[in-house]
Simulated assay, not measured.
Amino acid sequence: MRIDQKKMRELVGRTSPYSPDELRREANVFYVGGDLPERQTIETLYDSHFQSNAALFHLTFGDEERFARAENLARLIKKNFNAYLVGRVDFCPSQKLVERAYAAGVDILDIPLHAYDHARSRECGWHLEARLRSLDSARAVFPRWSVVSSLDAGCEPAGATVAGIDALLERDIVPLVQLTAQAAALPPEQLTKVFNHLQRGWQQKRALIKPLLPLIFLVSPFAPASPKGILRGFIDSIEDRRLLAGSDLRRLLRVKEVAESYESSGL
């Protein structure tokens, strides 16, 4: 991958695509709000997906009180579409909620830290330590490299974002970095260093980011190093199906194991 400087400037002025009450499509990614009505949402997704297959569905959960609504949408998406499902939970979910999200069909869970700087996190009410605990709980439920945490470039010093990238990778959590409007105040060289460090960290830890590439290419300045040829695209599609089938099988076995455990306990 390479860093596209023009794309970086464009992303700084863009609003976040994540919303619990909006439905939109960008390229081959669906952004689905978890608070949307089920039937109309699935019908709209199906119509668009039928015209051109999406590679990834991104579901933004709303508040904890409305968790069940997004949970049902996750089940319907997983039942009707053969693609990766990323769930974003912008609060500190309990392990029970994490398990419910996984059982509902979420393949990759994003619990954003936003900032790794303690003062900044406290000031904005992001509860850094509590979110780190939730991320560790999610790691105990989801397969390796299937837990993600997003950091917002520009909302804290670049050095803090770099430290956050390293801390997440040490926990086997995939760090993602998205640009915010505040990033406009940072010199482009600093932003470039952050994204270079991010890519280097992925490579050194051999983080599995392939399922996330459609999203990464939309929310960050990364771009493919070169266009895919027909053969490369075909091989990648076969590999994507293999990874997705493995993810679904692991979930099936995990859910079955938990159900049998409850049954043996008389619950």
Rank of each mutant, 00 (worst) to 15 (best):
G266W: 06
H118P: 08
I235G: 02
E123C: 03
G201N: 05
V32T: 04
P157M: 06
Q203S: 10
E257Y: 10
L218A: 08
L109Y: 07
D152I: 12
S265H: 14
V174L: 13
S134G: 11
L244G: 02
Q95R: 12
H118N: 07
R120G: 06
D63L: 14
T15H: 13
S16Y: 03
A259F: 12
E65F: 12
G164P: 08
P93R: 08
L169S: 08
L45M: 15
R122F: 01
G34Y: 11
S48A: 11
S94A: 14
D47K: 05
R232C: 00
A130T: 10
L252H: 15
V147M: 08
V12N: 02
L213R: 07
Q95G: 03
Q203R: 13
L176Q: 11
H127R: 15
A223C: 04
I230K: 10
L85A: 04
S19P: 00
F234R: 09
L151S: 06
G266L: 06
L218V: 03
A185I: 09
H49M: 04
S52E: 15
E189R: 09
I108H: 04
L176A: 04
L252N: 14
R66I: 05
L109Q: 08
S19D: 09
A207N: 01
V32E: 07
V255K: 05
A55F: 04
H58A: 10
S264W: 02
K205I: 02
N28F: 06
A138G: 12
V174Q: 10
W145G: 03
R75D: 00
G159S: 11
R88L: 07
I165P: 03
P175L: 11
R69C: 04
S134V: 00
G105Q: 12
H58C: 10
I77M: 03
L168S: 00
L128V: 00
V89C: 06
V174R: 07
N28W: 05
S134W: 01
A130V: 00
A68P: 04
H118A: 13
L23G: 07
E260R: 15
V148T: 09
P175V: 06
L191G: 08
Y84H: 15
F222R: 00
D248L: 12
V148K: 02
C155P: 00
Y116C: 03
I108Y: 12
V98T: 13
D152N: 14
L212F: 09
P37L: 09
G87I: 01
E156G: 05
D63H: 14
D152Y: 15
Y262S: 10
V162A: 13
D248Q: 14
P227D: 08
A115D: 05
L97T: 05
G13A: 06
A83W: 01
D236K: 04
S220V: 02
